[in-house]
Amino acid sequence: MKKCRYIIPFLVGALALTITTCGRGDKPEADGFTIALVMKTLNNPFFIDMQKGAEDAGSKLGINLIVQAAEREVDVEKQMQIVENLIQRKVDAICVTPSGSKEIVPAIVKANRAGIPILVVDTRVDAATLEEAGGRIATFIGSDNVEGGKIAAEYLVKRLDGEGKVAILEGIPGHETGDARLSGFHHVVDQLPGIDIVASQTANWERDQGFNVFQNILQSHPGVQALFTCSDLMALGAIEAIAAAGRTGDLIVVGFDALPEAREAILQGTMAGSVAQHPSEMGRIAVENAYRLLNGENVPEEVPVTIELITRQNAGSDSTPSVSR
């Protein structure tokens, strides 16, 4: 009877074992290289696309691809743990989308020390921090969110004829991607005296909050003429708020990510435009370049992935879905 108490812990282990073995059952160890793709999270269509691009390239090249991500996107510490563990696992190369542009640096340095090349995807590593720590990366593959913010701003200003009251819906404060888009946007509009930013609030990347926050902004600033949101989800919420106020079509709404739903809204005229990135391209190029690198070929220091302004003219043409982080 008493012995029973010591058997139970074994069951715990056994369960863990069962689940772990199930989890890896479908990935036979390939003869080729083992390359890891560490993303911010897996609970986001943007990264699912990236994973898909990487997997397609990987299977074409006969690469054993390991895809890992933290449970939550902002968890820089967990991402660092994953990189550390992959170093222990002795993978041949690591592609990473940093959860924090400075916070990833210590992990990069560790990989450097282990002689594992690091390919940075989508989000840039802070150059000064990297240099200070003496770390190096093999290449950067991605599009520039700051650039995207600028493109959005220029389009919005053009539609306003250089003059008007503008509101902004931000992402989660302190969040790299949103901050970059925002700073690109500010970079353009802050120089124009005709543009008056009447409100800039966070809607935490969420659609329902986009609705609520923008409804409040419409209450306090009825004269607002245009809206920039750091992601389409927030924009989609905001256009509902505009519709609820009976002002559909009155406001110029520019989003980011070019989600399918946003493209539809653009075609219907409830949104003016959005900015498209191509995550699956990023994933594909990252894996291909890692492969080249491991075969001793040179890869460029930087591979830009195109950013595209989506407006009524081209909203129907490209169907690459992507969402903001």
Partner: peptide, 12 residues
């Protein structure tokens, strides 16, 4: 750590 080493996804 072990699940990372085994390449198990974060969902699992």
């Amino acid at each position: 750590n072990g699940l990372n080493l085994l390449g198990v996804s974060s969902f699992v």
